[in-house]
Nucleic acid binder design. Structure first.
Length: 205
DNA sequence: GTACTGATACTCT
DNA sequence: GAGTATCAGTACT
């Protein structure tokens, strides 16, 4: 397995996130999610995302307007939105759209690249494919919890930021990205707002 | 391989 | 008080 140092790849800037949510969700596929913890780097390639809008999207937390929880979705793009679900799991989102317009991309799965020992310990499995192949699993593997809510994914002007997403400069053929209905929701199931990398084999690390 | 179920605590009505 | 952007374990095919 090839190791990837996030310092070799540039952080996605706020302009990347300040666009239509579905476009951001699709383009986040193949990007590198990086968490720095206790001097160690955990990273992995994003393989699955979902787009959530606002008032026209009953499945979104922002559908009912500015509730305290969803407030961050109305703020400026490029920040992390972490929330708690089903009593046990944290979910990681990236805020999208222009300030004042709600939107977020749920990061549902990543392919672990570095720090897999730490992830394996936290997840109680050594199977790389199962370490972070679900939204609840990836937050456990990457040590992401409510303390990460509101962090600036673009790094901002602050070097202490430890949660970032980098551009690997990989040209993904869009035929490699599958578009399907979203998972686990009860409303607006018909919308095709889930994006999945079809073949993780193209990352032959 | 698929199908079902319980665990769990936070958010909003 | 009801609903929830899930997971692991169990049972069954």
């Amino acid at each position: 397995m090839m190791s990837i140092d996030s310092n070799d790849y540039k952080i996605l800037d706020r302009g990347f996130y300040s666009r239509d949510t579905a476009i951001v969700a699709k383009e986040l596929i193949g990007k590198l999610l990086v968490k720095k913890i206790q001097g160690q780097q955990l990273n992995g390639i994003i393989t699955e995302t979902e787009a959530y809008y606002g008032k026209n999207d009953p499945a979104s937390h922002a559908f009912r307007g500015r509730t305290p929880r969803a407030e961050i979705m109305f703020g400026s793009a490029g920040f992390a939105y972490v929330y708690f679900c089903y009593g046990m799991y944290y979910m990681l989102n990236a805020v999208t759209e222009r300030e004042g317009i709600p939107g977020a991309v749920l990061i549902r799965a990543v392919l672990p690249i570095s720090g897999t020992d730490t992830m394996a310990m936290r997840r109680n499995t050594r199977d790389i494919k199962k370490l972070a192949n679900g939204p609840g699993k990836l937050t456990i593997a990457f040590c992401i919890d409510f303390s990460d809510n509101g962090k600036d994914l673009t790094g901002g002007c602050n070097n202490s930021v430890d949660l970032t997403i980098h551009d690997l400069d990989i040209n993904l053929d869009s035929r490699n990205i599958l578009q399907t209905p979203r998972i686990g929701i009860t409303n607006a199931k018909e919308k095709q707002l889930r994006f999945v990398l079809k073949d993780i084999g193209i990352f032959n690390f």
